[in-house]
């Protein structure tokens, strides 16, 4: 608890003072792998997590994301120098746009803002069947709806059962079940594929 309070004070002073938080701090790294999982679980199983936000971006201003949750909750999410941002790949704040969807994890500050440790922009995790395969595109059936998955050269990778991620998509087959981690293209039925998991 003491660490939580101290971390909140650090983040508050950093965002108010405009300081840039980078890498490790005296409280430990703010990188996502260090942020995942507090030693004690403060939130009851089954309950909403106040340190997690979901929704679509309605405004961006001075390092702050204004987000309307899908349940209509309003969020103000502070981006610091220590925030990790993912949008198809690890990226930077300037790639985030109004209209994007997101999930964010961080720490709720006393002013009601969420100081973000990690923000995943437009991320989707689809379980689908391959309906057709084209040049750099997978046509997916996802819960009875068609989703167009774009393969992005240099980024998209495939994992076949227990293999490491590879760029070779040649083992994908029409009719096969796949899991796709990707980035939704807002207001379309299209995603850009980061990783496609397929059974061999």
């Amino acid at each position: 608890m003491t660490e939580t309070i101290d971390r909140r004070r650090l983040l508050t002073s950093a965002v108010v003072g405009g300081a840039s938080l980078v890498g490790a701090t005296a409280l430990g790294s703010l990188a996502p792998e260090a942020a995942f999982g507090a030693p004690d679980q403060a939130v009851e199983p089954g309950a909403p997590d106040p340190n997690f936000a979901e929704g679509r971006i309605t405004g961006i201003s001075a390092g702050m994301l204004f987000v309307t949750g899908s349940d209509m909750a309003l969020w103000r999410i502070r981006i610091t120098g220590g925030t990790s941002i993912w949008k198809l790949r690890p990226t930077t704040f300037d790639t985030v746009a109004v209209g994007d969807g997101l999930y964010a994890r961080g720490l709720r500050l006393d002013d009601g803002t969420l100081a973000a440790d990690s923000v995943w922009v437009n991320i989707v995790n689809l379980h689908a069947h391959i309906a057709a395969i084209g040049r750099n595109v997978l046509h997916l059936d996802h819960k009875g709806r068609r989703v167009v998955g774009h393969l992005v050269p240099g980024t998209s990778a495939a994992r076949y059962n227990n293999t490491p991620a590879v760029s070779d998509m040649s083992m994908l087959r029409v009719g096969k079940h796949v899991q796709v981690i990707g980035a939704w293209v807002p207001d379309t039925n299209e995603v850009e594929i980061a990783t496609v998991y397929a059974s061999a």
């Binding site: 089954g46 309950a47 949750g69 939704w184």
Partner: peptide
């Protein structure tokens, strides 16, 4: 639960209580 993008049609799951923001 309520969501954006391809998740928008997910619904609240077999138990009727599921939300992305809950544990």
């Amino acid at each position: 639960g309520n969501s954006w993008g391809p998740c928008g049609t997910a619904g609240h799951g077999a138990c009727g209580t599921c939300n992305s923001g809950s544990y």
